[in-house]
Design a protein around this nucleic acid. Structure first.
Lengths: 245, 245
DNA sequence: CCACGGCATATTGTCGACAATCTCCCTTGA
DNA sequence: TCAAGGGAGATTGTCGACAATATGCCGTGG
C-alpha cells in the first residue's frame, strides 16, 4: 500500500477539503537527497516563497539545505526541466518571470493540449475513471457551497479536475508535458496573481458539460467544450488586463 | 564564422541539399564543456549512433569525451530535458524506447500543438516571415524534382517547414515545447524508422494550402489544415502498422 | 534442477576543492 | 561630470575521490 502522505499532510491548514481532492498527486517517497531538495525547492518556487525573477545563489541554497553544491545543482537542473528556472552560462539559475504575455501564452498552449487530452479521454477513459471524475465534481460543488466566495481552493480543485482528464487521455507524452511541466507553471501563476475567479459558477457548469461529453464518448464535442472552457478563462484574463491597464 | 560543423560535416553523404535548408538551426558556439558535450551527445542519440533503449555508462562517456563525470552529468541532465533520456535513481540514464504507441502519441500532441501554432502564425507572422516560408517551399520543390523518390531529405525539409511556422507563432512557450523538446524526438523516430514517405506529393500540396491560409490571415482555416496534415501522416503510419502486423 | 541468499564488483550519488568567468566598484583620464 | 579600464570579490564550471546503492555471480539448500 502507498503509505506516503506525510509532506502533503503537513499542510495542516487546508486539510478540510483540499487533501481529499489532491491526495493522488506525488505519492512516492524521495529516494535521494537531490530528489528531496528538488521537490522542496520546486514547491517553494511554485508557492512564491522564492520571488519570481529572483536569482538563486548556489552556495546559499546548498548551505540552507545542508547539501553540497553538486547535489543542489542536480536538483536545480530538474527544476529547470519543469520550466520554472532559466539558466545562463556562467551566471546561474533564475526563477522565470511571469508577464501577462506569458500567461496568455500558457492559455493558448493549454487550450490546444488539453483540448486534445479531452478528446482522447472521451475515447480512452474507463467507466471507473469517469465515475471518479463525477465524484470530484460533486465534492467541488459541496465544497463551494461550504465556503462560497473562497475561490482559491476551488481553483486548486479546478486543476485537479483538469489533471484527472489529462490522466484519462492515456497518452504518456501528453501527461508528461502537462502534469510534469506546464501545471507547475500554472500553479505558480495562480499563487502569484491570486486568481479570484468570478467565473466559479460558470466553470462548474462547463466542467459538468465536459464530463457529459466524455461519458457520451463524444470526443469531438469534448475537445470543443474543453477548448472553449479554457479560452473563456483566457478572455476573462484579457478583459481584466485591459481594465487594469 | 561558426566553425562547429565538424561532426555534422562528417556526414559527408548528405551535404548536397541538406545543409541548405537546415543551416539556420543552432548557430551559436557552445560556451562551456557541458554545453558542447550536450550537443554532441544529443545529436548522436537523435541519429541513432547510440541505440534506443541503451543504457549510458557515465564513466565510459566521461572518458570518451575527456571530461569529468560531473560535467557529463550536467550534459546528460540537459538531454533528459529534451525528452531523449530517462533517468532512474541509482541506476542511471537510458535512451528512451520508441514504440509505435509512442509514435502515435507524438502525432496526437503535434496535431494539437502545431495546429495552435499555425493558428497563431496566421495571426502573428510578418510578411517577411511568410515570404521566407514560401521560399522554403520553392526550394523543396526544386529539391524534390532533383532527387525524386529520395523522400528522406524531403522529410528533413518538412521539419524545417514546420519549424518555421512554429517560430512564426510568436509564442515562446509553444516554441520551446516544440523546437526544444518534441522535435528532437521526432527526428530520432525518423532516423530510426526511415520514414520513406509515400505522401511526398500530397504533403507538398498540403504545405502550399497551409501557407495560403496563413497569407490570408485565416487562422481558423490554417489550424484545421495543419491538423489534417499531421493527422494524415498519423493515419498513414497507422495503416502501415496494421499491414506489417 | 531450481530458488534463495550473500558476496564481489561496478555504477551512481555525494562531497569538497580548484579553476574560469562574471559582477561590481573604484580609479583614472578626458 | 562622465566614460573607460582595471582589480578585488564572489559565483559558476570543472575536477577527482569517497560513500551508498544496484547488478551479477556463486554457493547453498530444498
Amino acid at each position: 500500500m502507498p503509505s506516503t502522505e506525510k509532506s502533503i499532510a503537513s499542510n495542516t491548514v487546508s486539510n478540510t477539503a483540499r487533501s481529499v481532492v489532491s491526495s493522488s498527486r506525488h505519492s512516492v517517497v524521495p529516494t535521494t537527497r537531490a530528489e528531496a531538495v528538488f521537490r522542496q525547492l520546486r514547491q517553494r518556487i511554485v508557492e512564491g516563497d522564492i520571488a519570481v525573477g529572483a536569482k538563486l545563489s548556489e552556495p546559499e541554497l546548498a548551505k540552507h539545505y545542508q547539501i553540497s553544491r553538486s547535489t543542489l545543482r542536480d536538483a536545480l537542473a530538474r527544476i529547470e526541466g519543469c520550466g520554472l528556472l532559466e539558466r545562463k552560462a556562467n551566471v546561474g539559475y533564475r526563477v522565470v518571470g511571469l508577464s501577462t504575455d506569458q500567461l496568455l501564452e500558457m492559455f493558448h498552449v493549454r487550450e490546444s493540449l488539453e483540448g486534445m487530452a479531452c478528446r482522447l479521454a472521451a475515447q480512452n477513459m474507463t467507466t471507473e475513471q469517469i465515475a471518479e471524475l463525477k465524484d470530484l465534481l460533486v465534492q467541488h460543488q459541496a465544497n463551494e457551497k461550504l465556503q462560497q466566495g473562497e475561490a482559491y481552493f476551488q481553483k486548486e480543485g479546478d486543476l485537479d479536475f483538469h489533471y484527472k482528464i489529462v490522466q484519462g487521455s492515456d497518452n504518456q507524452l501528453l501527461i508528461r508535458l502537462l502534469c510534469e511541466e506546464l501545471y507547475y507553471l500554472v500553479r505558480m501563476y495562480r499563487y502569484q496573481f491570486g486568481m479570484a475567479s468570478p467565473r466559479a459558477k460558470r466553470a462548474f457548469s462547463e466542467h459538468h458539460n465536459i464530463i457529459q461529453a466524455i461519458e457520451d464518448r463524444d470526443g469531438e464535442l469534448a475537445e470543443i467544450l474543453m477548448r472553449r472552457h479554457i479560452a473563456a478563462s483566457r478572455k476573462n484574463v484579457e478583459k481584466r488586463m485591459q481594465t487594469h491597464e
